[in-house]
Write a protein that binds this DNA or RNA. Structure first.
Length: 281
DNA sequence: ACGCAGGGTATTC
DNA sequence: GAATACCCTGCG
């Protein structure tokens, strides 16, 4: 992978299997904002602008250092998705799903942010998830200005832990507010150790996350897949449930048919199902 | 316009 | 395990 700096821009050359629109629309991230031909992304306390031109990724408002230390990993650029797809293609449903979302990648996002974001996601639709996460950041995050526009970082556990339910009312996130507050307090007090999950296998990790109120199996698996890069996590939401019921056999379906990267298969299937409204009346 | 569903979970039986 | 309530809002 060749990374060069040119006129304040960082350019990552020759990137295959990468489609920003599909990544942004694949339901794993909620903090990309459309800007011109690309997007502004707020993550890890930073604001960058990113677009793709032919096989090159162009990053603005960053540095060579940040790109190699953060964003290459964030966009999973060292992984050969062609190879992973080839394994999945043995499954006939995956042929259509991969064709549909051929540029999807798994983002390596912040663990804490994923925990709170997916607590918010339960029993909720994507536009509202976005607006709640947005409200959380604008009210309690740090302001970062970029091109005359204000963006806000994701608030730290400490910042949220000092808030009250009344403070969180501005989010209009309903019953989830107490879940958010409780998780923040447990993380700050050390009762819950976010980094300890790294070394756990999927079973242990799930069990640990389930001790948090508002975190069930589905949310836990999203956190593990999107925040901990545990690609053997396989979140099943309403869309995945429809895929399993309509395109597979509900009685016999097992994510293990996709192997150790079944979580990535899930992401192709989710995007395909949602995009084509599979199983909806 | 208005009832329903939305990337589920906690609680209870 | 199955049934039910849950905050609020986008969508059909």
């Amino acid at each position: 992978m060749e990374i060069i700096e040119k006129n304040e821009l960082i350019i990552i050359k020759g990137v295959l299997d990468f489609n920003l629109e599909q990544i942004v629309d694949s339901g794993q991230a909620f903090r990309f904002y459309k800007m011109g031909e690309g997007y502004v992304l707020v993550a890890f306390g930073r604001v960058i602008e990113i677009k793709k031109i032919n096989d090159d990724i162009i990053i603005e408002n960053s540095s060579l250092e940040d790109v190699s230390n953060i964003w290459v990993d964030y966009f999973d650029l060292k992984r050969d998705y062609g190879e992973i797809k080839n394994v999945f293609l043995k499954d006939s449903v995956m042929i259509s799903a991969i064709e549909y979302g051929s540029g999807i990648r798994m983002l390596a996002q912040d663990k804490w942010e994923m925990l709170i974001t997916f607590i918010i996601s339960q029993q909720n639709n994507i536009p509202r998830i976005k607006s709640i996460v947005n409200a959380l950041c604008t009210n309690f995050g740090e302001k970062v200005e970029y091109k005359g526009q204000n963006y806000y970082t994701f608030p730290t556990p400490k910042r949220i832990a000092e808030l009250t339910l009344q403070d969180l009312a501005v989010l209009k996130c309903g019953y989830r507010a107490s879940y958010i507050l409780e998780s923040a307090k447990k993380v700050v007090s050390g009762e819950f150790d976010l980094s300890a999950i790294d070394d756990m296998d999927i079973i242990e990790a799930r069990k640990a996350l389930l001790t948090l109120k508002g975190v069930g199996i589905k949310v836990a698996d999203c956190v593990l897949l999107f925040g901990y890069k545990k690609f053997n996590a396989f979140p099943v939401d309403v869309w995945m449930d429809r895929v399993i019921g309509v395109l597979y056999d509900r009685e016999t379906f097992n994510p293990e048919i996709f192997g150790e990267y079944c979580g990535i298969a899930q992401q192709y299937l989710f995007y395909y199902a949602k995009g084509t409204k599979i199983g909806k009346k």
